[in-house]
Structure formats: C-alpha cells, structure tokens
C-alpha cells in the first residue's frame, strides 16, 4: 500500500448511501480526507456528484451512513463548511468586498478579524481594485473568484467545490486553478474539488477519487505525487492521465 505519509484525518465518510424513493444514487461510499488535503473527485456527468456534495454539505439528509468531521457528525451550524457552486452565487445587492465578507458575517467572525482577512484575501486574489463594484459590474470569472474568496475567508474545516470553473475558458481556468492552489497553500484548507475534467483534477489535487456510474461508489483512488507547478506535458502527468482515463473509459 503506497499511501501518503500518515496525516491527521479531517473528514471521514462511512457507508454513505442515498436513495430517492427506489432509486439508489449513492451506494456505500467510503473514504477519508486528511487535514489540509486537496482531494479531487472525478466522475461521469449525471453520476450523482451534486447529490454527493449536497450530502457532504448537509443540504440533504443521507439515507444511510455518516459523514464525520473531526470525529463528530458533520453539521453546517457547528462545523465550518464552505461550498463554491458551479453557477454564480454572489449576492447581486452587495459589493465585492461585502460578498467576500458574507460567509464570515454568518459565522459571526468579529469585525476586526473580518476586516483583516478580507484585506489579505482580496490581495491574494487581486480583487482589491474591484472591492466596491457590484457583481454585475465584473466578469463571470471575477464573480467566481469572489465566491472562492468568500469560502476561503471563513477558514473552512472543509471546502467543497462543485466544478467551480466549469463555465470558464481554458486559459482562465489555468490562471484560476493556480490562484486556488495559492489560496489553499497559504490558508491551509481541506478541499474536496469535484470536476469532470481529468487534467484539471491532476493539475490541482494531491489525490483523486474516481467514481463509478450510478449508483455511485468509489471506483479507484489515485495519488498524485507530482512536484508543483505541474506541467501538462510532463511524462508522469501524462501517465496519470492515462491511468485515470483507463478507469473511466466506459463513460
């Protein structure tokens, strides 16, 4: 077993199962995420990725199984969860900086600390110049960066990302993925990143879970031990890509 060096377990998913009536969507999903790990999950379209994330964030209840964060049942009211959606989710009536602050406001972060984190994150993602603009005055990619910043600003125990860059073009994606990695490294969050783009997954993640078609379970787990910044034409990168592609050839 060539696992990563032993790290503290942050999230543990045990026998997670979801049924909608008779339809079995998730079937006995088991995995764990280490503290500060960047985990990517790839799966075919319609395999229940969104259901999976909704379960993880407790937006919908599971039929069976458990999600444990630091050993206790996950709960958005007590645990610090953050979710970056695929579609734009900034509040149109708030400015960029008010949007970034929103998560912290709900979490009850004190004003001084809020201000400090806001400044530092706006600096990292380069949104300081647009701090006072409204979402409809900035581009779609910037709006997504606002959502990512809002999530990181809460110092989440677990950050869930549902194809956050799925609607952006390739060049912007590279840029934002680098920015995401920078945030992740500097702020040390535990991230679960769902995508159907294999290259994106290999580029950002330390470990990749490959899901099966519905009813979904974990088909395989692949460790990505490549140095960063990673290159798409690197021998080892292509190797892993081939490995993942083979696993999902039947998509």
């Amino acid at each position: 077993m060539t696992g990563p060096p032993a790290r503290e377990v942050k999230v543990e998913v045990v026998g997670l199962t979801k049924k909608f009536g008779d339809l079995l969507v998730l079937n006995d999903v088991n995995f764990s995420v280490a503290k500060g790990e960047f985990l990517a999950i790839v799966g075919p379209t319609g395999c229940g990725k969104t259901t999976f994330l909704n379960l993880l964030s407790k937006l919908i209840p599971a039929s069976e199984g458990q999600i444990l964060i630091d050993g206790s049942e996950a709960d958005p009211k007590t645990h610090n969860l953050a979710f970056v959606f695929q579609e734009p989710s900034s509040l149109p009536w708030l400015t960029v900086s008010q949007n970034v602050e929103f998560g912290m406001l709900i979490k009850g972060v004190p004003p001084g600390e809020r201000e400090r984190r806001l400044r530092s994150i706006l600096d990292i993602v380069g949104l300081a110049d647009c701090a006072n603009l409204f979402p409809n005055q900035i581009s779609a990619s910037m709006e997504q960066r606002v959502a990512v910043s809002r999530a990181f600003a809460t110092n989440p125990d677990l950050l869930l990302m549902d194809e956050p860059y799925g609607q952006l073009d390739v060049k912007l994606r590279f840029y934002l993925e680098d920015e995401l990695l920078k945030l992740w490294r500097e702020l040390g969050a535990t991230v679960i990143f769902v995508t159907h783009n294999i290259e994106e997954a290999i580029y950002v993640a330390e470990r990749i879970l490959v899901l099966t078609n519905k009813p979904t379970s974990v088909k395989a787990e692949i460790h990505v031990d490549l140095p960063r910044p990673r290159s798409f034409i690197d021998e080892a990168f292509i190797d892993i890509r081939r490995q993942v592609t083979d696993l999902i050839r039947w998509w």
Partner: peptide, 24 residues
C-alpha cells in the same frame, strides 16, 4: 443557489430570510 450558499455557511432560517430573501 443563493439560499443553498447561505445554508452551507450555517445561516439560520431567519438569517436567510433577512439577508437573502428580503433584499432579493
């Protein structure tokens, strides 16, 4: 999406009402 977003941050029903639904 906005309601879900607020929920994942742990917002209460009342917070979602005042901070999301009313302004929107």
């Amino acid at each position: 999406t906005l309601i879900q977003m607020a929920r994942t941050y742990g917002a209460s029903d009342w917070q979602i009402f005042t901070k999301i639904c009313v302004p929107s």
